[in-house]
Design a protein around this nucleic acid. Structure first.
Length: 425
RNA sequence: GGGGAGAUACUCAAGCGGCCAACGAGGACAGACUGUAAAUCUGUUGGUUUUACCUUCGCAGGUUCGAAUCCUGCUCUCCCCA
């Protein structure tokens, strides 16, 4: 008998909406359910983590999770939440993305052969052999245009226009649910709240085609407490792929969570028990300056996404970079240095650049690309934002050999949070 | 097809012959306060060899000593009438 999946999600604040009867159906027996992932990029980002965690909880509750990568739906383009027609990716890119996304999901779910082992499916497999005529006869016939037009994702686009391709998206995704319901016995589809319309089209299709029971649960859209979008930094999306977002940056992203958000996020993004989370929140409220929640959050997620070694390095790098003094960094051996600061932006200059002293403005922009222009370098210097080896400097500062750590490194900083390593060779 | 309105920096949005690298708001970055939080206050927000010069106000030309501002053509967007 499975544990109560819905109850678990409820206290974690992960449920936005669900169909009546969902909880009862899931408690009756071990069930199968799925979530679709969009292969629009070759990596998932922190936004997708919510969906991943839902699937993890589903499996932990004893159910069988299916992760669907949308090789077929990716070719069509979901209009939900989009104000403009999407550009279509070519097949090759899509294939590549599907493979990459698959690999990332494997880090989270247990793909064992047991009763509730996770499985990966690609909807391209059941769409590739289907003809257009077949589709409109067997699927299109069951859903009316009126029904499709009433969807928010469609309504909001009638003004600006949408192609027939995007309009048909909900049918294609709806058919996924039907297919998995019929062949894999999936009785629940999970997803973000923007997917509600698509999911319901699926349950409708199952019903009209005389299929079995089918339910739906959606998660709320995660927003930051200031109302802005979750999962973005000034340099763009926070990806799960270490090549696109280094483990250090990933760790830093979570560490920078605000107090309000941290209480929400720890429930959503970690698997810690209710007791443990309540204890952490209490401790955190008592002495907020220790940032207990942020640290717990960052550690838990970084370890799951990037592994223990990467986490250890991220913590070490953070400790060194955010300490008030340079000592912790100075004492690192030359080998450890680059290892620890792997994810920190860096650039190399030659020793001869330093022979007469390297002007700080050149060191910030033209020689390294740390800042985008000399003007910006001057501005930041004027604002007292630039530091060399943790010490604030003025615009006439010259970097010389005496500033080198381990004979070859200089640490540049802008503001409190942005660091840059200058390597001299 | 006929008529009208518009296109300005990351976004919104002023400016309608020189005082415009372009008001203001939002965003972003930085400083102070702190805890790498939030809120608040302050500064910055095209480039350079920085009291000056260069490039930028949809695109291409033109008028003028001088144009984001006037004229011509083009492209695109929106609205109204058919």
């Amino acid at each position: 008998m499975p544990k109560n999946f819905i109850e678990e999600l409820q206290w974690r604040g992960m449920i936005h909406d669900m169909m009546p009867g969902t909880e009862e159906a899931l408690n009756k027996q071990v069930s199968s359910g799925y979530i679709g992932f969009d292969p629009t990029a070759d990596s998932l980002h922190v936004g997708s983590l919510v969906q991943i965690m839902i699937l993890v909880h589903f499996q932990r509750a004893g159910h069988k999770p299916y992760a669907l990568v949308g090789g077929a739906t990716g070719m069509v383009g979901d209009p939900s939440g989009k104000s403009q027609e999407r550009n279509l990716l070519d097949g090759e890119t899509l294939d590549h993305n599907v493979v990459c996304v698959k690999k990332q999901l494997e880090r989270f779910l247990d793909f064992n052969d047991g009763e509730n082992g996770a499985e990966m499916v690609n909807n391209y497999d059941w769409f590739k052999g289907m003809s257009f005529l077949e589709f409109i006869r067997d699927v299109g016939k069951h859903i009316s245009i009126n029904y499709m037009m009433s969807k928010d994702s469609v309504k909001s686009r009638l003004e600006t226009g949408m192609s027939f391709t995007e309009f048909s998206y909900q049918l294609v995704q709806g058919y996924d649910y039907y297919h998995l319901n019929k062949h894999k016995n999936c009785i629940i589809q999970l997803g973000g709240s923007d997917q509600w319309g698509n999911i319901v089209t699926g349950t409708e299709l199952i019903r009209r085609k005389g299929g079995g029971e089918a339910y739906a649960v959606t998660t709320p859209l995660i927003k930051k407490s200031d109302g802005t979008k979750f999962g973005k930094t000034e340099s763009g999306n926070v990806w799960l792929d270490a090549n696109q977002t280094s483990a250090y940056k990933f760790y830093q992203f979570w560490i920078n969570t605000s107090d309000d958000d941290a209480e929400k996020y720890i429930k959503i993004f970690t698997l810690k028990s209710r007791e443990e989370i309540e204890r952490l929140i209490d401790e955190h409220r008592e002495s907020t300056y220790k940032r207990i929640l942020q640290k717990a959050l960052a550690e838990d997620i970084t370890i799951r996404v990037h592994g223990e070694d990467a986490l250890a390095r991220a913590i070490e790098a953070s400790a060194a970079l955010f300490s008030k003094t340079i000592d912790g960094i100075k004492n690192l051996s030359s080998e450890d240095f680059l290892d620890v600061f792997e994810g920190v932006q860096q650039a190399t200059v030659t020793k001869s650049d330093l022979s007469d002293g390297l002007g700080i403005i050149d060191a910030l922009s033209s020689k390294t690309g740390f800042l985008s222009s000399n003007g910006e370098a001057r501005r930041e210097l004027k604002a007292n934002a630039i530091s060399v080896n943790k010490a604030k400097v003025k615009d006439d500062f010259l970097i010389t050999e005496t500033d080198l750590m381990n004979g070859k490194y200089v640490l540049l900083g802008k503001g409190k949070k942005t660091n840059f390593i200058l390597i001299v060779e």
